[in-house]
């Protein structure tokens, strides 16, 4: 990455692994994750903080990685979709999204799951309004959201 900004030392925890690499600074966290770490699960749908496709957890809080300077992640803990659960060891929300039909084109799905996971970490038994609020920053153009909401409800049931 050729960039006018100076290199920075990115020392942080990503998906429970400590990393320490030099990288061209001055970019958003989304670009750092995708371009330098090849964590391609986090998506860019608008690049202006409106669609939620780039949602990741920073110290457990959902943030829009397209609006987050990469330097802000230094010394902190980042969780992406790749750190939520892998095949054979899925997070209950990933499993519920599959079973309830919460996935269609799948482009919003990683960001949607990150917002859902954060909500479930915050609240073990969210009601429907809280779920809607929890994912209201994540746009989906395919599903009409209802099956996603149901998936979060099912995951909450399973987790409690």
């Amino acid at each position: 990455m050729i960039n006018n900004q100076k290199d920075v030392l990115m020392d942080l925890v990503i998906n429970n692994k400590h990393i320490s690499i030099r990288a061209g600074g001055g970019r958003c966290l989304l670009d750092f994750l995708r371009e330098d770490l090849s964590l391609m699960g986090t998506k860019e749908g608008c690049g202006e903080g409106e669609c939620g496709s780039c949602t990741v957890l920073l110290d457990g809080k959902a943030v829009l990685s397209c609006m987050t300077p990469m330097e802000r992640a230094i010394g902190r803990e980042v969780t992406t979709i790749e750190g939520v659960g892998r095949p054979g060891n899925l997070h209950p929300l990933q499993q519920a999204m599959m079973e309830e039909g919460g996935v269609q084109c799948g482009f919003c799905t990683p960001g949607m799951i990150m917002s859902g996971v954060e909500l479930l970490n915050r609240k073990s038994n969210p009601n429907r309004d809280e779920i809607v609020e929890g994912i209201s920053g994540n746009l989906c153009r395919c599903t009409g959201y209802r099956k996603i909401i149901t998936a979060i409800e099912r995951a909450a049931e399973k987790m409690s």
Binding site: R86, P87, Q94, Q95, M98, V103, G106, F107, T109
Partner: peptide, 21 residues
């Protein structure tokens, strides 16, 4: 039957490859 979509696993784990990936 409402079987689970065959591409659901790749999509919920972020492994599905879109054009920009």
């Amino acid at each position: 039957s409402s079987v689970i979509r065959e591409d659901a696993l790749a999509k919920v784990t972020g492994q599905a490859e879109y054009s920009g990936d």
